[in-house]
Design a protein around this nucleic acid. Sequence first.
DNA 1: CGTTGCATTGAAATCCCTCAAGCGAGGTGG
DNA 2: CCACCTCGCTTGAGGGATTTCAATGCAACG
Lengths: 226, 226
Amino acid sequence: MLMQVTKQITPGRAPSVARPFGSVPLFDQMDVMGAPIRYDRNGEIYGEEEPTGYLYRVSSGAVRICRLLSDGRRQISGFYLPGDVFGLEADDTHRFSAEAVVASVITVTSLGAVLRQAERDGELGRQLWNVTANHLARAHEHMLLLGRKSASERLATFLMDMRRRSGTSGTIELPMSRNDIADYLGLTIETVSRTFSQLELDGLIALPSSRRVVVCDVSALEDLAA
Amino acid sequence: MLMQVTKQITPGRAPSVARPFGSVPLFDQMDVMGAPIRYDRNGEIYGEEEPTGYLYRVSSGAVRICRLLSDGRRQISGFYLPGDVFGLEADDTHRFSAEAVVASVITVTSLGAVLRQAERDGELGRQLWNVTANHLARAHEHMLLLGRKSASERLATFLMDMRRRSGTSGTIELPMSRNDIADYLGLTIETVSRTFSQLELDGLIALPSSRRVVVCDVSALEDLAA
DNA sequence: CGTTGCATTGAAATCCCTCAAGCGAGGTGG
DNA sequence: CCACCTCGCTTGAGGGATTTCAATGCAACG
């Protein structure tokens, strides 16, 4: 399975991204210093063992962070959607890889430059820490899912999370495949598919197509997500 | 099951802790500004929903960070040993709880004070970010375990991690119960116990007592840990 | 219209969980 | 000093949720 990679710098600035709290130093900084780069579907943004040194922000598309076992088993630790920052690793080599789930534009900024700027600009540094600490909280929350939730609870949690993050309340557009969802939820693709079917059978969701989920019973799904 | 809590401020400074890289501003700062507090076994250091505002560093003992589901299912996201910092949450209320695994002394420092100091002292801010980013990397690594590893792989990974962290190479002293290990590894106590027995049967470890593990075949365990 | 990639469905197997009993060290009191 | 209790740990038997293996469906595309 060959990953097709495109790291083509597009001229001009990255497409603008929602900025709900007015001026956000970290994001401003990244927009000013960073360059928008386009990646094809399944394109590798960085790989395990590669040197670190950049901070990434999704302009459009979606990104997955993966960790592989030697025999090919894969765990996706998170999906990143437009506006999300990723690549927050303090080591000098990546211990995880990042790939574009669909064709995406990512704003790439020198991490060293941001860190140096943060040493002068306290507010920037504080925001960088905030973003990282929030990622940490999400990670801990996901551990609860992986360690203790059933398949239907996992899928419901995932759907409610995607619903919240994509802003839409009725229909959720999933950019990722069943395989990606399985590797994110610690299940097999078959179990994910069966669980989708079961949720549809129970009337909690409708599936006009495999990547489009209509939420029918929010409260039941929220309950399942626990 | 009533948790016995002791939050008794002991006079004087915290017991000194290994400081391998000479002066470490973050830790120095915490030693200067922080107060050592003693907790009994199973004592709650902070609970879910409680306000945040402190940074913690283990002086002696061991700490677990937990997340509970409404029906009592529990996931332990990490154990913290002497020298480790925890409590890195950016939200204003804790989404996780912290408890002492055994009687412990924790140095508690105002998070706000550290953050304010970090806005002036770039090096301190950078270290705070580094610690947080390292926690994040560990969390991602643990997701791989929870999502994709078998019971014996999980236990081997845990033992190799404890071996590395406790510094000892031959015998590992486990401060936590089988129950804690189970909730950390996403297994049941019975499976943990059986897997310990199996590793002993296979000659990879010896168990002089349930909390004391003698490592017999490091490379086999490392292989299992993958 | 065949190919290709992804998704769904079915049947059998497996690993881990659940339920239940037994063990052993440590503490307490008679 | 020993019986007895408690608590944590171990072990066994059976069951169940998820995986594995295999086949089919289906939409996009050349």
